[in-house]
Structures are given as structure tokens and as C-alpha cells.
């Protein structure tokens, strides 16, 4: 296990280099950052002066070389837009993003798993069909629409929750639910199908024939094995929640990474995009490692393989 973890951690280094190069190339070819900084009707001469002052007139490889050498020193550069240390700005946003992501994930698990089990237990019943239907709806429903509807009905027409912004628990409920609904809609059918598969297994039949209570059979014997795909789907969803909760963050004015990244992309603010992408990549790698460790804990046979 230790050797496996070391190997995975070492793999991070080339991955980060490849990501940073890809982002650099994409932003470089996307356009001229100076065009986004000065008014549309600024003169060519004014743009040229600013371009030189910011070092943007240097050849591509030289610019990338400077970026790499600074990155080695832990300096990801200064934001063109904010004129501040890019990494600092990204870290400033991370708590808001992590708060929303962890709350949404928790909510998704709390909603998704019980309904998945319920659905499996009551297979082909009205409840099973209803839960499956809602799951399909949850996957199909665009998050911005759900967010706007929740604001309309639970914040404007019935002022139960704040419309937007970050604050106490009450501010988390609507954006958290908006994100959680889509994820729970993926967890529920997954739990249902893996529970159904497991409930057919010989060892479950044995457990039942031993006279164990159905509750014990479900939660102690079947559920743990049904968790493996759930962990997999969570590991896949977390990077999306960290970097891609953009629409939900925008709808609810949640000051997280998603909003920062999209503004930086529109403004071609290379330093912020690089810093944010590298942080998101590191978080993603961390969670995928965590998921691997969790697989092993849930199912020791994986480790033996």
C-alpha cells in the first residue's frame, strides 16, 4: 500500500507539468490579455506599451520558461486583473468552495444512499418507480434552472432562505441543495443497482437463512459492498464541485473558485487560471488517492490485487 501511494504521489509531478503547459498554450492562443485590459478603442501604441511593460511581447517559449522557473520557486505569478499574488487570491477563495462542496457532498450522500437502499428494498413498487423517476429528473435538470426556481419559491415568494451570498448555514441550504440534487440523482440508482446485485449473492442468502434480521443483512452485509461504486462516483464528482460549480456559484453569488476562474478566463488572466487549475488538479489528485484508499478499506480484496 505504501509503495502504491508513493508511486501515485510521484505521478503527480509530470501530471502537473503537463497540465500547466496545456493551460499555458490554451490561454496563449486564446487571445491577447492586453486587449481585455484596455478599452476596446485604445490605440495600438498604448497597447504595445502595456504589452511590453507586462512582458507579454516576449516569445512564447521565453514566457513559458519564466513561468516555469517561477513555479519552481513556488511563485505562480501576479494576476493582471488584480495585480496581486495569484496563488494568494486562489487560496482566499478555497474555503468558500470547500465549504459548499463538502456540504453538497454530504447532502447528496444523506439523500442519495437512503433512497437508493429504499428503492432496492422496495423493488418494482410505486416508491421504487417514483425514486427512479426523480433520479432521472435530477440528472436531466440543469442546475441553473433548479437554482433559480429554488430562489424564486423558497427565497422570494416564501422568504425562508436568503436569496444569495455566503454567510451562516442558512446561506448554504439552497446552493448546497442545487448541487447535491444532481449528485444524489447519480448516487441513488447506483446504490439501488449495486444493492440489487448484492442482495442476489449467495452470502446474503446464507445470512438470511441463518435467521439474521433483515436490517442486519442490509446494513451490515450488503450495504458495505454496495459502497464501492458510491465512493467511485463521489471521487469523480469532487473535482467538478471544486472547479466546476461555476453556474451554481454564479446563480447564488457564492464567492468561490468557479467564479474566479471564469472571470480569469474571460480576462485571459494567465496567473490566476494557472494557479486555480493547479490547485484544482492537486485537490482532484488528492481525492482520487483518498478514493483508492477508501476502496481498500471497504473491500480489502482490492488491496490484495
Amino acid at each position: 500500500m505504501k509503495e502504491y501511494l508513493c508511486r501515485r504521489i510521484l505521478q503527480i509531478i509530470p501530471v502537473l507539468f503537463i497540465i500547466s503547459f496545456a493551460v499555458f498554450v490554451l490561454i496563449y492562443v486564446a487571445g491577447d490579455p492586453v486587449a481585455m485590459m484596455l478599452p476596446s478603442d485604445a490605440t495600438d501604441a498604448d497597447r504595445a506599451v502595456l504589452r511590453t511593460a507586462l512582458g507579454l511581447d516576449r516569445p512564447f517559449l521565453e514566457q513559458y520558461g519564466i513561468f516555469l522557473s517561477n513555479m519552481m520557486k513556488g511563485n505562480l505569478g501576479r494576476s493582471f486583473r488584480y495585480r496581486e499574488d495569484a496563488l494568494g487570491i486562489v487560496f482566499e477563495r478555497l474555503p468558500a468552495t470547500l465549504e459548499l462542496a463538502s456540504f453538497s457532498m454530504l447532502l447528496a450522500v444523506v439523500i442519495g444512499i437512503p433512497f437508493g437502499i429504499w428503492s432496492a428494498k422496495a423493488r418494482n413498487s410505486f416508491m421504487d418507480i417514483f425514486i427512479t423517476g426523480v433520479s432521472v429528473l435530477g440528472r436531466a435538470m440543469p442546475s441553473f434552472w433548479l437554482g433559480i426556481m429554488l430562489i424564486l419559491f423558497l427565497a422570494v415568494k416564501n422568504p425562508l432562505f436568503p436569496v444569495s451570498g455566503r454567510g451562516g448555514l442558512e446561506h448554504l441550504i439552497l446552493p448546497g441543495f442545487t448541487l447535491a440534487f444532481g449528485i444524489a440523482a447519480q448516487i441513488t440508482p447506483l446504490v439501488r443497482s449495486s444493492m440489487l446485485e448484492i442482495l442476489q449473492q449467495d452470502y446474503i442468502r446464507t445470512a438470511r437463512s441463518k435467521g439474521l434480521a433483515e436490517r442486519v443483512v442490509i446494513y451490515k452485509h450488503a450495504f458495505r459492498n454496495a459502497l464501492v461504486p458510491v465512493v467511485a462516483i463521489m471521487a469523480v464528482q469532487i473535482p467538478g464541485l471544486i472547479g466546476g460549480a461555476l453556474i451554481t456559484e454564479t446563480v447564488f453569488s457564492w464567492p468561490g473558485l468557479g467564479q474566479l476562474v471564469i472571470q480569469a478566463i474571460y480576462g485571459l488572466d494567465m496567473a490566476i487560471v494557472q494557479a486555480a487549475v493547479l490547485v484544482i488538479a492537486l485537490v482532484t489528485i488528492f481525492f482520487s488517492l483518498l478514493a483508492d484508499v477508501l476502496y481498500c478499506l471497504i473491500d480489502p480484496r482490492i488491496q490484495q490485487r
Partner: peptide, 18 residues
Amino acid sequence: FRVIPEVSTRVGELLTGG
């Protein structure tokens, strides 16, 4: 000065007195 990028959310905040 609050930052609310989505126009329908800005309107929602105005209507609720936020």
C-alpha cells in the same frame, strides 16, 4: 457593495429587501 452576477438573483434580492 454586493457582487451578484446573475440578474435574476439581483432582482430576487431587491424584491426581498436584501
